[in-house]
Computed example of a mutant assay.
Amino acid sequence: MALLHNRVSQKELKQRLLQETEPRTTISFYQYFPIEDPQVFRDLLYKELHALKVYGRIYVAHEGINAQISVPSSNYEAFKSYLYTIGPLNDLRLNIAVDDDGKSFWVLKIKVRDKIVADGISDPSFSMEVKGKYVNAAQFNELTNDPETVVIDMRNHYEYEVGHFESAIEVPSDTFREQLPMAADMMKDAKDKNIIMYCTGGIRCEKASAYMLHQGFKNVYHLEGGIIHYANEVKKQGLSNKFRGKNFVFDNRLGERITEEIIAKCHQCGQPADTHVNCANDGCHLLFIQCDNCVKQYEGCCSKECQDVIHLPIEEQEILRKGIDKGRNVFNKSRKRLRPRLNEKE
């Protein structure tokens, strides 16, 4: 019987990826559709994709599938052919990464979840069958030429910070489940306006559009394929690009450049920068923006305290990571935990 999960260490798998010579293609896709038995579906999917040397992160739930993967370029057509044999996924749009080095993932993980996007919605009358209208890149540009059109970014603060559409409204929250009621409340006086919602690849804004309609909004749209598909389409069609900066992505790249404009700042010195890193202290791993100068000065750490930690003997670092006297070195990606910024001068 084929193994249905990985048993090789992450370190070894990452090293194997770095030694690969064949190019890989990074792809994201999702689909809301009913899955009767997510575990059975997950196991079948794992066997097929593992055989095609697919790496990545896939979530399966009763409401559908959400995937970010990489596949050897020589297996791309075989992967697509297999995917399209699954009825609800036939001819599904596949978002090809904009700025891809092929090193986005090094292991295949397929997990069964309660939902493919955690939304906090408990109302049984809510349905994904009633959702906003798709707009493609050209339609998005046309609608946003009207100053009365409202554009809402349905991503987290650290995604919005490095790149977003012109005049897009940020919903200042840490999680998607918090954003949904906040977005509805922020727009309560704009129920008759055209509202366009967008996200990275389309999965969050599609659900958000359904939620807004459920809350009584009338003219709700969502950007087809999200930022990734938009960036590919404006380039292919020679359209005006209304996105500024970098698109944050949830893989080893942590971002793909859409325009050369840098709209964010280093969290340590305040100079223009939009490169996300995780703190080099394994007991911290704060996600933050760091410029090249601060990388050298702090050795990839978010603070002097974490920098001191990485120079301790490994045994002492392991003790700290077990929860003994960690103090302020435990961080997360929360907006609240990033304020005030790390060492930024006012």
Rank of each mutant, 00 (worst) to 15 (best):
L3E: 13
K14C: 07
L18P: 06
E22D: 13
Y32L: 13
Q39E: 15
Y46L: 05
H50W: 10
V54N: 05
A61K: 02
P72Y: 07
S73Q: 15
L83W: 05
Y84C: 03
D91W: 00
L94T: 01
D99M: 05
D101H: 08
D123L: 06
P124S: 07
S127R: 11
V130A: 08
V130W: 08
V135F: 03
F140C: 12
V151I: 15
D153E: 10
M154V: 03
R155D: 00
Q179V: 09
K191P: 01
K193N: 15
I196H: 03
I203W: 06
I203G: 02
A208L: 06
N219T: 03
V220P: 06
H222T: 03
G226W: 13
A231M: 06
L239P: 04
L239E: 07
L239N: 04
V249L: 08
V249K: 06
V249T: 09
F250M: 02
G255C: 10
G255W: 08
A264F: 04
P272Q: 06
F288R: 12
V295G: 05
V295E: 11
Q297N: 11
G300T: 06
L312A: 06
E315V: 14
R321N: 14
D325I: 10
D325T: 08
G327E: 07
F331L: 08
N332R: 00
R337E: 15
L342D: 03
